[in-house]
Design a protein around this nucleic acid. Sequence first.
DNA 1: TCATCTTGATAAATTATTTTGATGCAAATA
DNA 2: TATTTGCATCAAAATAATTTATCAAGATGA
Lengths: 312, 312
Amino acid sequence: MTITQLHYVLAVAEHKNFTLAAEKCFVTQPTLSMQIQKLEEELDIIIFDRSKKPISLTEVGEKIVTQAKNIVNEAGRIKDIVDQQKGYIGGEFKVGIIPTIMPTLLPMFLNNFIHKYPKVNLIIEENTTEEIITKLKNGHLDCAIAATPLEEENIKEIVLYYEPFVAYIPENNINYSKKEIDINDLDNDNILLLQDGHCFRNGILNLCKNNKFLEDGGFHLESGSFETLIKLADEGLGVTLLPYLHTLDLNENNKAKLRNFVDPKPAREVSLIYPKNELKIHIIEALRNTISGVVRGAIAFQNVEIISPKLK
Amino acid sequence: MTITQLHYVLAVAEHKNFTLAAEKCFVTQPTLSMQIQKLEEELDIIIFDRSKKPISLTEVGEKIVTQAKNIVNEAGRIKDIVDQQKGYIGGEFKVGIIPTIMPTLLPMFLNNFIHKYPKVNLIIEENTTEEIITKLKNGHLDCAIAATPLEEENIKEIVLYYEPFVAYIPENNINYSKKEIDINDLDNDNILLLQDGHCFRNGILNLCKNNKFLEDGGFHLESGSFETLIKLADEGLGVTLLPYLHTLDLNENNKAKLRNFVDPKPAREVSLIYPKNELKIHIIEALRNTISGVVRGAIAFQNVEIISPKLK
DNA sequence: TCATCTTGATAAATTATTTTGATGCAAATA
DNA sequence: TATTTGCATCAAAATAATTTATCAAGATGA
């Protein structure tokens, strides 16, 4: 069994077609046929059922493919180790970002970064915190941006910035008239939050433990976007909290309903997180510097005294 | 990079000697030299510092070796998949057992098992519950025996038996005169327990929540063996609890101090646990049957009504 | 139904890689 | 200085991978 053979197997499994898979592997079709036959012979099992159209995996084949992916993935990390040693800033670099950070932060640094490090092939994906942790640990992500602290084993966190929350108070609410809000003022309101998995929620729940929402769960909202939350708040269903960077894009009408918190402001800690093995530490450092640079201007002036909750 | 090359690298890393490593790989020394050179050339780094005696790993070399182990380990699982498919009962089979189960259970089934399945190369190691979980997940163990329930993701549990606890009451204790003990009778005693990590401890703490030991922690004992606990109890430092199978080996003097619990007896659930992928399920089933057979005779007659605590 | 197309298997020739036995060379040992 | 130890090197031999050309089975479609 060779790593090459496993690559061939994966290609056929993906394309369900020997000829096409061969092209993708930059070899001729007989090469693929032969090598896969050799592997099947060595293992004395059949991986592909060639009688079906399109070609399908046998039951064992499925398992072999799953494991082959693991092996190939692990093998790929050898290159990462070497790149790290050489201080090479380039190659594939996969970053996970949680949904509530993605739309505001990404545009701020993306252009900057790809121009500064053109050799890096940046691959960004939106993931929940939970997905991020799994993928960091199994190597499907090189680093991620999420709300912290997570205190996960084998994962390191470098704080990028503290982002204060801003209250969004609809007009009919008794707190609307206040210029600034204390977190305890909201004790009697429904606080509309994002669905679980969007870790933003965890960030707030711990701050207002006396809130009705938590006590009796008058109603349970599982919205996926701040836009929905704002509309629901406008309907008089409660108040909501928005991370500062999100409030910058609101229209004037909505901005009028924003109220800053008095110090100490509730805030979320946003960090760059990555596996302890520090395989791509050079690229991670590059990313950190880029983000720090652009973010400083955007939120540094906000005098954030943190009530950073212990997440999850 | 080939899997063979990685094997060669690991062999040299282990033996610190090309000639010896070559022997272990059943190839000649030039083969090893060439292949490792080829790999070093491909990666454009040096793995081994040949100037030192004995040969040593470079800094990158260390990392490469660590990763090579992962790759080789993952590659080895392909064989497991195939074996599983073929229902083959044989090959290497690694079992972890927690310290408080090892000495009593192992002798009961070991002989039986290795005679019944001579093709299985059984490798037993003593591990804490925590180690077991890690090793099951990363494939360094095929299955394990531990106190349950653990409720760990990706790990399955099959209960082997329920083992009742027996109280060990020193003579000076007020409970000594009782023929049977109620768990609540011990509320005012120090209960001597094994150190953390030995999961036996978790099994008891939840049962007697009012115990002084927990309330004020008059003193904290971190003993590693039941023998020590028994001696400390004899010194008048408290009472201790022993799993039933352990009590069978005590001397007469000690046995006199044992008191059964009244129903419902506290008990620990002992299970065979293994990864959800069920890679070696046939061997695991074989092991389960063997253990069930021998254990039934030993503790089935104990009318165990379980207070099985939820473990950590 | 019959020609045609698609697609994987096979054969033979070619090319590339791996392994080996013989030997060299440097450093340690005695 | 002679000897041993241990890795590197080399060229020949053995093995293995790849390719080109071709085939055969099943699908497609006129």
